[in-house]
Simulated assay, not measured.
Amino acid sequence: MEQWYSLRWFTYDIIRSYEWVYPYFLYLLPFVPFLFWIRNAFHRRHKQRLVITYHSAKEGKDWLTLLRFVQPVCVGLGICLILVALARPQVVSERTDRFSEGIDIMLLIDISDSMLEKDLSPNRLEAAKLVARQFISGRLQDRIGIIIFAGEAVSLCPLTTDYELLYGFLDEIRPDMIPTAGTAIGSALAVAVNRMRETKGDSKVAILISDGDNTSGNLDPTTAAQLAKAFGVKVYTISVGNNIKKRVKSDTLSVPSALVDETELQNIAGLGDGKYFRATDNRTLGEVFQQINQIEKVKSRNVISRDVSDYYRVYLYWAVLFLLIAIGTKSTFMANILED
């Protein structure tokens, strides 16, 4: 803050920037000259007059005569500044801080052999990775982790807000990362619950992407879904692929392609207080993630903080200064000793 004796405190910009706590004191400022008129009216009859002949030594204004007005002007300015100080000028600056309550999201991606089917382009797994990447880029301040599973489940990336790190892990996902064959949905869900059970997030979400064909693992998917509900983890399930039975010719044999088991995923979503989605192509898979993105929005709250700075002391100091000048000049040649 500038020194109190700076003349900048009387500029228009500074005065305009103030908020006045008691503005009604400012309404008394026009009456200050009226006080001097009243004083003059009451003392007019009691004034002592001495008739003398006075000739100015100089033409024009006599500056010595004008100095007699210093004392009453200082008194008037002092009173005005006291009123300004009583009005309590303040500068109030408001700041709005937005606090976001992040969501803990665990992506569970099936990398079993059935995810290599090409009913999505270029295959189910690559389509899931692409849309998962788009989903991550649309989140804000959420902690996101990745779990991959086939015959067993592996925590690939813990919950983090480093989205670039997540992109790197997504790019590295390959079917051969887990040599154990099968699809352990229950185990994957159990790993996700274990990762999120001690987190402090207000909302915990597991997004399971699979063809729904649970063929391995030590934990039943139904039990894992009940466990997720107990720890407050909401489970969304997405089945990728379609249910149309296809047959792929291999030499002279006809081999049925991998089919999507919707029943298992629907049951998991129901038990996990989530929702089941079906994605039969790349476009619908993207729409599914957009729906989840809308459902699980980041909750935010605005906190307004007010920084209040009082400046009444500046004008009070000026008032004291003018009053001291008025007192100091009262018994000098600047005052009219005949009136006092």
Rank of each mutant, 00 (worst) to 15 (best):
K61V: 13
L140G: 06
A57I: 06
A132V: 06
D119Y: 01
E117Q: 11
R88K: 05
S93C: 02
R44S: 10
G78M: 02
L67G: 05
L140D: 14
R68D: 01
W37G: 09
F135E: 03
W37L: 11
S93G: 01
D142W: 02
I38P: 01
S93T: 11
L64G: 03
S100A: 15
S112V: 07
R44D: 01
A85N: 06
R124N: 03
V92Y: 04
T53K: 09
S56A: 12
S56I: 09
L107Y: 03
R133F: 14
I105Q: 02
Q90F: 00
L67D: 07
R68M: 04
I52A: 06
V131M: 05
L81V: 11
Q48N: 15
G60Y: 09
S100H: 13
G102C: 08
A128L: 00
T96A: 06
V70T: 09
T53W: 10
R124K: 15
D62I: 10
K47W: 08
C74D: 07
R95F: 14
V70C: 04
I103H: 05
K129F: 10
Q141L: 14
L67V: 06
P122E: 00
W63C: 04
E101H: 14
I105V: 15
I103E: 01
C74Q: 02
L50K: 13
G60C: 04
V73L: 15
Q134V: 12
E94S: 07
V75E: 01
K47F: 11
V131S: 00
G76N: 01
K58T: 13
R39H: 13
K61A: 08
G138L: 06
N123Y: 05
V75I: 15
I103V: 15
C74R: 05
P122M: 03
D110L: 09
R39Y: 13
V73K: 06
G102A: 08
V51H: 06
S56Y: 12
K47V: 08
L116R: 07
I136G: 11
R143F: 05
R88F: 10
R139M: 05
L77R: 05
T65W: 13
D110T: 08
L120W: 00
V73Y: 02
I82V: 14
M115D: 02
E117S: 11
K47L: 11
L140N: 13
S93A: 07
S100G: 14
G138I: 03
D104N: 14
Q141W: 14
S112N: 04
K118E: 12
R139N: 09
E94T: 10
E101T: 15
K129T: 02
T65A: 13
L64F: 14
N40P: 04
R95W: 13
Q48I: 15
A87W: 00
I109K: 07
A127W: 01
L77T: 09
R68T: 05
C80V: 01
L107G: 00
R143C: 09
Q141T: 15
V91D: 13
S112C: 08
L120N: 01
G78N: 00
Q141C: 11
R98I: 12
P89D: 03
F69V: 08
R98M: 03
T96N: 12
G76M: 10
F42Y: 12
Q48K: 13
D97M: 10
R98H: 14
A41L: 05
I79F: 06
R133M: 12
K129I: 04
E94V: 03
I109D: 02
